[in-house]
């Protein structure tokens, strides 16, 4: 997923690189990037979703030469970007209901087809609530009909806009307003929730991928590839939420990076239901390093810590590593 040339000074990990030719550089490093989500939006300091949305939509804008329409589910992204009468969006953008973004996307794509404007492409986007819970029926329908829409889920692992309630993307052990840190097993229950990227794969749609805001090159490559394909596509981006996770605003990218490096958030691509590529872990770290800076996991640590729950979360990371082959050489457990 990374550029073929290695530059040891800047690495292949920085946003830009003066040593690359302009066409090899990332969209975000360009003076001409479309800034699809413009300044002045009301997202919190260090918002991962605002960042993820600009990364993804800017890349889609470049891939379609600006011929792009977005449908948006209700959620943080919608609320902070469009308080009436202002908008931060610099592309045609429509919001209808919480649960119907995929269906609206389908409708726009159908309309463009009828009008013979095949060059205009459609994305539908929402948070994890609008995607994995409320909009899930419409999403599954869009998948099974193989509608020509790229659906992007910005996953911050809870309903942040309404005050941090649990969603089906909330990880086990996390404290939310509806999964309080009380009782024998505080926080979100183990064994609940759903993995929508795997469910999307089960629909055997042309393209499914996961990404994080910590790896821009990987994210942009995936968006670009998705826009080169017709049919239903799904991109699931992990976007840390400083407010809901109880993390420092400057740690947004660091946390996304650690989510991948622990194995808790596997980064992969799949075509037609088969995994085709995984982004390997570069420097494996124990889950504790990822969990500790987040107050939503504070009850796992300290004097009355939850060793068993920590072990359970580590086991989940280990399972991902094994299942997706996230390490080059399997280290002995």
């Amino acid at each position: 997923m990374t550029a073929p040339i290695k530059f040891y000074q800047t690495g292949t990990f920085t946003v830009g690189n003066r040593l690359l030719s302009p066409e090899q550089r990332s969209v975000q490093s360009s003076l001409e990037r479309s800034n699809s989500l413009n300044s002045g939006h009301r997202a919190c300091q260090g918002c991962g979703e605002a960042l993820g949305a600009r990364y993804a939509v800017d890349a889609a804008m470049r891939a379609t030469q600006g011929q792009l329409i977005a449908a948006n589910a209700t959620g943080c992204l919608e609320v902070f970007s469009t308080p009436y009468p202002e908008t931060s969006w610099q592309l045609p953008w429509i919001h209808s209901l919480f649960g119907n973004a995929a269906a609206v996307g389908t409708g726009i794509a159908a309309a463009m087809k009828v009008k013979g404007r095949n060059n205009v492409r459609v994305i539908a986007q929402g948070g994890d609530g609008g995607t994995t819970d409320i909009g899930f029926g419409c999403l599954s329908g869009m998948f099974e009909r193989n509608d020509d829409v790229l659906y992007i889920c910005y996953d911050n692992e809870a309903y942040m806009n309404t005050g941090v309630q649990r969603s089906s993307a909330t990880p086990a052990g996390a404290r939310t307003a509806t999964t309080m840190a009380v009782g024998a097993e505080p926080g979100a229950q183990f064994g609940q929730g759903k993995n929508v990227p795997l469910i999307a794969m089960a629909h055997e749609i042309p393209y499914v991928a996961t990404a994080t805001v910590a790896d821009l090159h990987d994210l942009e490559t995936k968006v670009e590839h998705a826009m080169s394909i017709r049919g239903a596509r799904y991109l699931h981006i992990l976007v840390p939420c400083p407010l809901g996770w109880g993390a420092a605003s400057q740690d947004t990218i660091k946390l996304a990076r650690l989510a991948r490096e622990t194995g808790l958030f596997p980064v992969f691509e799949a075509e037609g239901g088969e995994v085709t590529a995984v982004t390997k872990i570069r420097r494996r770290v124990p889950v504790e390093e990822y969990l500790r800076p987040q107050k939503r996991f504070a009850h796992l640590f300290g004097a009355k810590g939850q060793q068993q729950m920590l072990a359970g979360i580590q086991a989940r990371a280990d399972r991902n590593i094994k299942r997706f082959g996230l390490l080059d050489v399997e280290t002995a457990e």
Binding site: T14, V15, G16, R18, Q28, H41, C47, A50
Partner: peptide, 15 residues
């Protein structure tokens, strides 16, 4: 600064 564009890229506010 060696102009790696990181600050330009990672700002959630295009600032």
């Amino acid at each position: 600064c060696f102009e790696c564009d990181n600050c330009y890229g990672v700002c959630p506010d295009n600032a």
